[in-house]
Amino acid sequence: MSAEIVSLDLRPVLRAGGEPIADIMRVVSRLEPGQGLRLMTTFKPVPLFGLLDKKGFDHAESQLADGEWEVLFTPRPDRRAPAPVRTVAAEDALAASGAEWPAPTRFLDNRDLEQPEPMIRTLAATEQMRPGEVLSVLLDRRPVFLLPELDRRGHLWRGGLEDDGKTYRLSVLIREGRGETQ
């Protein structure tokens, strides 16, 4: 029944300083009834246990040789079909961006930074990336001054609150040549 388990190796992302929790929750929200999830991580992902328990998963963790962990989340029989993704992404999504975007190549955790540091870091990252790449950013709140600036520079973005109700997840698809010429 291996097809009934989706595997995610998060170790490269975690080592690069990324925050994959939103990705995990996205994958979870797309699991079919009866499908399980296997995660490989660089630490014991305790916060996930509670989050996924609420969504109807039991967990079994085992430590791998070098301090890394493998966790298997198995759905309880009462787990229902996934609810539609409850983020506000639809509100923010640009019409043009309906299609699937490539997986993010760069992750930023801009939470707990004093204003306007999150905006500075995000824009600095967009300037270093190539067209077609996707930047994934976690923020404390909806970045009201950043979004118009991304528009001005011609990038596409999607954003919405994560399921925790606090973290705002922003994805930026880098585009070139449409922004103002400064």
Partner: peptide, 21 residues
């Protein structure tokens, strides 16, 4: 301070060195 910074430097962020607020 914040609005002036945003007005003067918002469009330069990431493109050149900018002061902090």
């Amino acid at each position: 301070a914040f609005l002036t910074w945003l007005e003067c430097y918002g469009h330069w962020l990431g493109k050149r060195r900018t002061p902090r607020v």
